[in-house]
Design a binder for these strands. Structure first.
Lengths: 132, 132
DNA sequence: TTCATATCATACTAAATTGATAGGAGTTAG
DNA sequence: CTAACTCCTATCAATTTAGTATGATATGAA
């Protein structure tokens, strides 16, 4: 398992935000975390869409968390960023290219169990727990 | 989380092998599972290197499992195929590009916990459990 | 011994995903 | 008005992954 750089950046930026207590501009975050500003913008677009952060436009604007770090789980953050596409080829035995809902091939069983386990683990880790 | 096509193919091929009880040629597996033969060869090279299968060359040769399906865990299979590279950018606070062993940033904490959880889950699922 | 059928090795190509950049339009406090 | 923001869209580059091509080597069987 590995996280995409995208998710890794997001976690660090949100930790930064959580530590600050209030709101920060992306420029400020990019500077302290040494991340590319324009890339951060794209990431925060996703985070906003997922409801993890709220934005304030205009001069002296920025982003703030919508929930307290004690409430915000890593699962929520990861889900906002990671590409959810599940490519599960399953040509057998019916010759169709993708698993259908009714298909109970072994591969799908593994993926389902794993997904459940991952979600459970990540939902237990709150952002607050990651601040030293 | 998603599996690569590579891992998905491997699981299906090994299930095929497990069901047969003995040894099968890749051609036979490719045919029943409708997988590209040459791609299967590459996959089985990895599986062999990891000690999951044994090969028998020549005419009427093929592959067989080295362990019984009751013993073989999905973790072993996945580990043989998935790219283990962990890219964990961590420019802050010291400006280095990658997390060092001593770094305890929040991102790393998450990854470590998750890796442990995944390994635990996958090691409990044996190949035999996936055969209907 | 010859031949068909295997594994094995290497190189290459194509497609998809991901990381990152560019330029500018709309907002808003000072 | 302007500086400092968010926001929007398009594009490019790097990396990873999927799949193909070609052929060498091994071996059981006719």
């Amino acid at each position: 398992m590995k996280f995409s750089t995208r998710t890794s950046y997001a976690l660090r930026a949100l930790l930064c935000l959580a530590r600050s207590g209030g709101s920060l501009s992306l420029r400020a975050i990019a500077q302290t975390e040494r991340l590319p500003l324009k890339y951060l913008e794209a990431i925060f677009a996703d985070l906003k869409k997922a409801g993890v952060v709220r934005s304030l436009q205009g001069s002296s604007g920025g982003y703030r968390l919508t929930a307290r770090p004690q409430q915000l789980s890593v699962l929520t953050i990861v889900s906002a960023l990671e590409n959810p596409k599940e490519t599960l080829y399953c040509l057998s035995p019916n010759g169709k290219k993708y698993c259908s809902a009714g298909c109970h091939c072994g591969v799908k069983t593994v993926v389902n169990k794993l997904n459940k386990s991952i979600a459970q683990t990540l939902s237990k880790i709150k952002l607050a727990a990651l601040i030293e």
